[in-house]
Design a protein around this nucleic acid. Structure first.
Lengths: 167, 167
DNA sequence: GCCAATTGCTTGAAGCCTAAAGAATTTCGG
DNA sequence: CCGAAATTCTTTAGGCTTCAAGCAATTGGC
């Protein structure tokens, strides 16, 4: 999946190659961290990353959320959430009920034990992340935040202009 | 080294949270770009990202690679490569043969048409990436490269120390 | 009130991914 | 040369993910 960032990309004198290399390095970093987090979550809590992410959303919403809300927040498809929730209800982490006012709507929330379990996971998770960024100075962290913010904006702009072109 | 008064102030309140926020932003950026790339590959060439990545590896190896080589380079499981290759052989992009000297080994390479198709995709791909990073100055790009390099090292160090602990 | 459009969710098909177990083949110590 | 160990690949079971199609309930124009 990942092209190793040290691998030489198409050799051209132009500056496009630099951006490609930057992208590959960005991807490598993310995959490295994500892989670690997945592994540790599995090892320590026998839980997958998508389930952790879903619980993280619900932890911030004591009154529960609808499946659509979750889907938007997590930026994944509706069908995806359906399956995820199904398994988390099955394992006792989530509670699910049909809305009283709109019978199309399903409201889900963490169960008491689900919340307790999530809090434990989240606490460790944060120390893992902090540890993985351990070599970066506070200044590095700020600078990375700034540059990634700029990147995010740039990508969104580019994505919007493409979306506008089609049709 | 000069520490301005601001540096310390920022450091005081729970710096773990900053690293978590950094991680989330990094993840958002990567997902944004990856999503764009997936969408465009699908739209323009009706190909998936994993297939593109596999072809990219093979393009750099005119004499072909074994499945194990591919698996290591791409950092994915063996079983995964088996299925990916199967579909790419099916679609005529890849050629596959059993090694003459070791009958356990499968050697795969791009077909003529597969290579031609890949080259077209790769060229466009590079312009997409370049476009998405368009708002970043050359200096930004260099700085991001540097900080991500540092991050990569830090994560690897942390991952190694964990791997060492679990006997 | 009626019906068409919209909204919320589920289902199904296809693909990607892993870990673990299994099969075929080669390697190597004795 | 023999058999154990290692290597290469495939298979299987389970989970995640999307898109597209479909169903049920609600809303809004008339």
């Amino acid at each position: 999946m990942i092209l190793d960032s040290e691998t030489k990309a198409v050799e051209l004198p132009d500056e496009h190659g630099n951006e490609l290399r930057l992208w590959l390095r960005l991807l490598t970093c993310t995959n490295l961290i994500e892989g670690e987090v997945r592994g540790r979550l599995r090892e320590r809590f026998d839980v997958t990353l998508p389930r952790f992410d879903l619980m993280a959303q619900l932890d911030k919403a004591p009154d529960g959320m609808t499946l659509s809300d979750v889907s938007k927040r997590m930026m994944v498809s509706n069908g995806n959430v359906t399956g995820l929730v199904e398994r988390l209800v099955e394992s006792g982490h989530l509670d699910r009920r049909t809305s009283e006012t709109d019978r199309r709507v399903q409201v889900i929330r963490l169960t008491r034990s689900g919340r307790a379990e999530f809090r434990k996971m989240a606490a460790e998770h944060q120390t893992w992340i902090s540890d993985m960024f351990g070599d970066l100075s506070p200044k590095d962290v700020r600078e990375l935040m700034r540059l990634l913010g700029k990147t995010k904006g740039s990508v969104q702009k580019s994505a919007r202009s493409r979306a506008g072109e089609e049709r």
